[in-house]
Amino acid sequence: MIKIRNMRQFSDSAWKQVILVCGASSIVILLLIIIFTLREGLPAFTEIGFFKFISGTTWKVANDDYGILSFIVGSIYVTALALVMSVPLGVFCAIFLAEVAPNWMRQIVRPAVELLVGIPSVVYGLVGLLLLVPQISKLGGSGDSILAAAIVLTVMVLPTIISVSEDSIRSVPRVYKEGSLALGATQWQTIWHVMLPAARSGILAAVVLGMGRAIGETMAMIMVIGNSIKIPVSPLDPARTMTGSLALEINYATGLHWNALFACGVVLLIFILALNSIAMVLRGRTQQ
């Protein structure tokens, strides 16, 4: 009997060790990613200067001259344009799913939105390349443009915005809605003046999360944005995103070029970190 109990205790503590090793090694790996990227990127910041690096407009590998302003502008331009289109669409869609839709319609829209999440980004890129780019080239330019990239992104971030906004609209206490309706407000007045303001933090979190997804998208952007290094002005201009530059150049980079690309990765990390923190604060506020 004592022997059996010892066996049990042995296996108990052995398994605890195994779990501990798994937990610790995952955490070490994840920390390693951040430390590694920082370590490889820092030389570019010290050699070029942080401010000069992010405000420089030229990126010439031959001259060892690296400034990523055009990539930052490209990323932000595409993301902003995509949000201008996807936020109204997404929020109205969320209102529809939470408050307006008849049940049968909900059962069509939900799986459709779920499927949109799953479609690989290269498929979005391919459809953008074959369907959008030729149409946009009729407006001027080659068609590979910020506008094409923004439309592709609009569809890609829509599911994120819809699902997070819908959750926050649904979590508005019932009494708010009932109180407003009891005072004689119409259903829409209730949604617009009572429920949306109450769900504001959650909807903002949805927008911020969508922004994070948009800034991180890589392959679909490379396929439709034209990848030119010039700072874009019109939405019909080609451009390049931060992510796109990393993917296109890292495999043949050496020396300072290598460090500059990692530094660009660090800038990307900072963006994501800032956006995630904002989203976390906003979601925390919703839960209260």
């Binding site: 990613i33 990227t37 999360l209 991180g216 990307l268 970190l273």
Partner: peptide, 15 residues
């Protein structure tokens, strides 16, 4: 850290 890394763009993992 886990929450943040879940949102990091895949190309950064690629680097």
């Amino acid at each position: 850290v886990i929450e943040t890394l879940a949102g990091v763009p895949s190309i950064v993992f690629g680097l």
